[in-house]
């Protein structure tokens, strides 16, 4: 039984369907899917061309967490909770920017939902605009690298900490580069009663400016450089991290992608790469990413 069909409209090499099918399969299709407006919604839910094999709802851009809370409340009220898990699939903009209000509300009330943030680090559906989860130094169409500015200035919003701060019982980050990691975390997450948040790094071939054939490699490099740490919090406590054997310099990750290419020629590029390396180092320190040599 397929829970997500072929024939969807994702770009060749898109990470989103990989994440979605992994989540749905991990839960044996016992899922009520709630989707925000965005790439995933557009590629999968055209009237008459629906790709979903599970009950699905899309309402607006910024209310997926609210809609999911409503589905969950209804299932609870009608004694139908055994039917399946309420799972949100929302993009990074829908999660960290426009939808953070309803997400915070759902977290605060601790609805029994699994919220999956599919993080491709910009508004890719509308053509690669900056979101709160766009990393610094990325050239997007609303933070383009110009004569003065080296792409986005600022930082990537730390949604993991924001989720943990809400007292959410299970919070994790994962990556399309490691589907077994997604599977394990999803299976674990649903064992927790209450709200669960998993942020999955998902390569975007058009926005990131990569060929589909290297999508997985690039996703793994984000982890191997320490820029995208894969961590797990249970009841607010850090319980596991994916260790890195020989952490690679961030340049190895950046140089493969058009969105960061300017950093290697721009006047402020070196400074930006240094900043990103600092973020990676801080992640390594904070989460203990480096596998210490005995």
């Amino acid at each position: 039984m397929k829970y997500f069909g072929s024939g969807h409209g994702a770009c060749p090499g898109c990470g989103l369907p990989i994440a979605v099918k992994t989540v749905l399969n991990a839960l044996d299709g016992k899922v009520f899917a709630v989707n925000s407006t965005g790439c995933l919604e557009i590629i999968s839910s055209q009237y008459g061309k629906n790709a979903w094999g599970v009950p699905y709802i899309h309402s607006l851009f910024e209310n997926a967490a609210g809609v999911a809370a409503g589905v969950e409340a209804a299932l609870r009220a009608m004694k139908r909770k055994d039917e399946g898990y309420v799972v949100v699939f929302a993009g990074d903009g829908a999660t960290a920017d426009i939808g953070i209000g309803t997400l915070s509300g759902a977290f605060d009330r601790n609805h029994d939902i699994l919220y999956i943030c599919l993080d491709n680090e910009a508004y890719q559906n509308t053509g690669h605009q900056q979101s709160g989860l766009t990393p610094p130094g990325e050239s997007t169409t609303t933070t383009p690298a110009g004569k003065v500015l080296p792409g986005k200035v600022g930082r990537k919003k730390d949604m993991i900490s924001i989720a943990v701060a809400h007292g959410v019982p299970y919070v994790a980050s994962s990556s399309v580069g490691y589907v077994s990691d997604i599977r394990r975390k999803v299976k674990k997450a649903v064992k927790f009663e209450g709200a669960k948040y998993i942020q999955i790094h998902s390569p975007c071939v058009t926005g990131w400016g990569i060929d589909g054939s290297i999508a997985i490699k690039v996703a793994r490099l984000a982890v191997e450089t320490g820029l995208y740490p894969l961590v797990e919090f249970e009841h607010g406590k850090l319980t596991s991290v994916r260790k890195i054997k020989d952490r690679k310099p961030v340049e190895e990750y950046l140089k493969l992608q058009r969105r960061f290419r300017h950093l290697f020629t721009h006047e402020k590029g070196k400074e930006m790469i240094k900043l990103l390396q600092r973020f990676a180092d801080e992640n390594a320190e904070r989460y203990g990413l480096d596998l210490k040599k005995e």
Binding site: G5, G7, K49, W52
Partner: peptide, 14 residues
């Protein structure tokens, strides 16, 4: 209300 049947995308041969 534009409700769709499941797995209809498979009609689209990509």
């Amino acid at each position: 209300g534009a409700i769709s049947e499941p797995l209809q995308s498979e009609k689209l041969k990509t």
